[in-house]
Design a protein around this nucleic acid. Structure first.
Lengths: 121, 121
DNA sequence: CTGAATCCTTTTGGATACTG
DNA sequence: CAGTATCCAAAAGGATTCAG
């Protein structure tokens, strides 16, 4: 490894869970194994394409496990690998921060939308 | 507040630091006040436009403070607000995860590039 | 039910040149 | 030094449709 690819560990972590829905996937799988449709409904408004794509990446990256029961009708379960669980744990404080400051963050969201709106005018 | 805008705190936190360089900005400012050019050099390969844009958002969101000394030549300093520091702290475990698993993450990066390359062929 | 394939829109980031 | 303005390329996400 000739060069440090990342300036800090944060970069490395964010590189792994870059993708709009990955953190949410981690969050839901941290609570247990989920079937595909189950996961999709839990996350809500996300397209199959994107969900599948991100699940595949997480799988290729060794974060999630995919178990295909090879049956008809199809049944596939997703869960976290041991590695994935360590990442999930590192995510907890951030999750707690968001929970503690949820009202503050929602205020931020409102202000951002207001700014965008002004800019659109 | 009729609806929970976020399914979990994680979403809220990620909403705030969404943007390629924001985590890195947090990281560098967590170690102290920085002048604009200083920050830019610390981060490395980032354009003025994007850095300024993200700094402005972080400022509008109450994460960073901007102090313009109103002098010639221009001198502007950036630092974290108290709120920003709490977010910085929540980021630490993730940073540590990345550091502990840096080699693993670099391996992931290599494999991803290999996949992209294969796909390009 | 799980997922692949295609097309399309939006968003994001970057290069460059210019200003007080 | 610390930005601003414009233009542009790339990537990411989403809608829809189809298949085993």
């Amino acid at each position: 490894m000739k060069k440090g690819a990342f300036t800090c560990g944060l970069d490395a972590a964010l590189f792994v869970l870059g993708g709009k829905w990955k953190p949410l996937i981690l969050f839901h799988l941290a609570h247990g194994t989920r079937r595909y449709g189950e996961l999709r409904r839990a996350i809500g408004r996300v397209s199959d394409k994107v969900l599948i794509q991100q699940l595949k990446e997480l799988q290729a990256d060794g974060i999630v496990d995919r178990t295909d029961f090879g049956e008809i009708p199809p049944k596939v379960e997703y869960s976290l690998t041991a590695f994935g669980r360590t990442l999930g744990k590192a995510l907890v404080p951030l999750c707690e921060w968001g929970t503690r400051n949820s009202s503050g963050v929602e205020a931020i969201m409102v202000r951002r939308k207001a700014r965008e709106h002004r800019h659109a005018a």
